[in-house]
Structures are given as structure tokens and as C-alpha cells.
Design a protein around this nucleic acid. Sequence first.
DNA 1: AGTTGAATTAAACAATTGTTTAACTTTTTA
DNA 2: TAAAAAGTTAAACAATTGTTTAATTCAACT
Lengths: 207, 207
Amino acid sequence: MIKGTEQKIKDAALTVFIQKGFANCTSREIAREAGMNVALVNYYFRSKSKLFAIIFESVMQDFLKSMVQVFCSELPFREKIRLLIEREFEFLVQHPDIPNFVLNELARNPKAIEGILPVLHMVNESGVFDEAKKLQASGEMRSMDIVQVTLLIMSNCQYPFMAGPLMKVIHGVDETTYTAHLNAHKTHAVSMVLGYLFPNDQIPNNA
Amino acid sequence: MIKGTEQKIKDAALTVFIQKGFANCTSREIAREAGMNVALVNYYFRSKSKLFAIIFESVMQDFLKSMVQVFCSELPFREKIRLLIEREFEFLVQHPDIPNFVLNELARNPKAIEGILPVLHMVNESGVFDEAKKLQASGEMRSMDIVQVTLLIMSNCQYPFMAGPLMKVIHGVDETTYTAHLNAHKTHAVSMVLGYLFPNDQIPNNA
DNA sequence: AGTTGAATTAAACAATTGTTTAACTTTTTA
DNA sequence: TAAAAAGTTAAACAATTGTTTAATTCAACT
């Protein structure tokens, strides 16, 4: 498969932006990564900012895509949670730098978030929030705001990847070992979150 | 209390660096924030990098200080966990941008971490890890690697603050409402983590 | 008062930045 | 095949950057 120039630039920009952030990289760096002249980058995308906006939005799509897919599925609620966490881990193993990238750019430039509003709309439309509220009304699920349910899940998925560099130093482990820990953490995240959300469920106790 | 010039620069640098990151701010911006000329910043700290190194290390100290204090205390283990989470939340309410700042700079410049090695040594010396292993050997505590215990705690404390901008948009809530959610989340974090680490403890079920 | 040294500033410096221009090459097309 | 368009490049541009210089103000000391 031959990649056109435009796609080469996008790929290079994705790599460089995610690795260094918008402010911490230069147009020439992107051009070099793509194997071409600086002017070509602007020829195709007019400016560094415009290129960034495009890359950022596409990253956000990937970032939220699997979440939306699971939410819109027909699985029972507990399975949605489980699958959501597992998919999130699968995604993050491949793209461990994305949460850091997204949250950081969002904190420094709040209006960058506008591009994801359509995707968020899909989440709301999926009815998954209503589903949770019904389970809470029936007493099956622990009653807590949906915001905090979201926080529980995303915290335990994304933070372990974001904190990789810090954790490796704190515990003195290398990349490979830490990856193994991440894998084990996925299992814990699933059973801890499900166990907390559904305190009456019989959970297998491996202790 | 009158602040000397050097301290004024440090304060300004702290504000600006945390808000925008190292690469995303200028020396002149720091000088302006401190109400003085650019040259004065370099007169006191020789370069932007050296100033940053000083600020970063002091932030890391604050970031880890309360953790070390709790670890080195004489409290029973469960109380250490509870207090650790509560102190962490107290700290993060006041400095919500610090986790993002620290993890981001760490990801982009791994050698920046060297300054915290002494503090980490204190954590190891505190014997809190051995304490956990004993509780695990007795079957009282769920057996899992200490790395994952750390991850469970830090994920549920830090991520909710880091993801503030994203969460506010996802759920369409304002700053005040989100702060209330953070407060509620603290309670959940404590009981969820303790409940998972000590599955045989009787936990009050408010559901 | 006058001298010394630190504190502070405006101005300049060289390097790098995002962006544009103008020339050159390749591809399309009529 | 020749003209037109698109693709690509080297070079230049103006703005901004971190840093330094040289001059000025300020405070302390004799």
C-alpha cells in the first residue's frame, strides 16, 4: 500500500504531536518525520494549528469510539461495564500516550473539546445512563451519580497508563514488567468496579 | 509579609509552569507575572530550564509529601489507606493541576524524575510495603502485587482531578457541581478500595 | 558625600519559530 | 505534445524565543 503525501503528513503529525504535545514540537519536526519539506505541510494543511485540530479530533474519535460502541450494544449492563473496561485496556495497550495527550491539551486549551460534542451526543442517545438509573431504582445497583460511575471506570483504566513513567521509577520496574502489571490490573479493575457497583452480586473470592 | 524578588519569581514560575507547562510558556510571561523585567529572571536563576528544574522538584516534594507522612505514621494499615486517600483529595482540591503537570512533564522528559528519588527512598524505608505483605500472608488482605495496590489508590485519587475539563463537558456540569462530585467521589474511593483490598471486612452497605 | 556592589532595566543578540514566496518538477489534460 | 495545474523545494520573512550586554538605579558602608 502506497501512502499519499497528505496521509504521510497526518501520520507524522500524529506521532509527533502525541509524543511531544502541540507546543513542544515544530512544523519542521513533523516535516522531517514525514520525509519532506516544511512548506508541504502548510501546503496541505495551511497551518500548524489547523493540522493539529484535525489530528486532535481524529484522536478523540478513536479515544471514545470503543466506548460508544459498547454503550450502543445490546449487552446486559454488567457486561457493558466489563467489556468497556476490557476494550479500553486493549486500546490503551496500543496507544498508551493518548490519555495524557488528550487531557493535557484539553487542560491547556479548553475550546479544543468542541470537536467531540457529536460523539458525546451518541453516548447520551445510547440510553446507557437511563439503563443505569433503572438498575439503581431497583436497588440492584449501588445508588450514586452517573458522573461518579464514569469516574470509577475511567480512572482505573486510563490512569495506570498515564502514570507509567512515574510508576516504573517508584517501583523500580522496567517496561516489560510494568506491562505485565497493567494486564493484571485490568482484571482487578473489572472485579473491583463491578463488585462496588453491584454489592449484592456473588463475586468469586480468589483471596 | 514582604516577598523578596527571588520568591516572587518562584511564585510566578509555579503559577505559569503549572498552568501552561514548560514548553508552552515564555520567560517573559513569567517575568510579567512576577511584575519585572525578563533579565531579572535569568539574573536569579541563570536560565528558564534551571528555574523549571527547581520548581518541578519542589512541586514533586509537595506532591509526595503527604503520602510519605502517612506511610511513616504509626496508624493501622487500613487507616493509612483511608488517610492517604483523604489527604490526597485535600491536596488535590487545592492543586488540581499538579498531577497533569507532573505526569506530562515526566512523559516528555523522563530524566526530570531523578529529583524525587530521595523521597521514594523514604517510602521504601517506611516499611509500609512489608506491612502490606504481612497482611496478605495472613489472608486478611487480598493478595496482589504492591504495584497494583498503588495503582488502585492513585488512579482513584488523581484521575478525577486530571479529567476535570473532560468530565465537565461529557456530563455538562459546571465547576461548582463538579467539585461536589469530587467530594462524593472521595467517599466512594475510600470504601471501594478498602472493600476490595479487604474483602472479608464488614462494610456498611448504604445501597 | 562618595564609593562599592548588588539589583534592575532597556536594548541587543543569535537562534528558532510559523508562514510565505518564488522557482522548479511532475502530473494531468486538452 | 504543449499548456495548465498540482506537487515539491529552497530560500526568505517577520515574529518570537532564550539569553546576554551594558547602562542605570538603588542600598549599604566608610
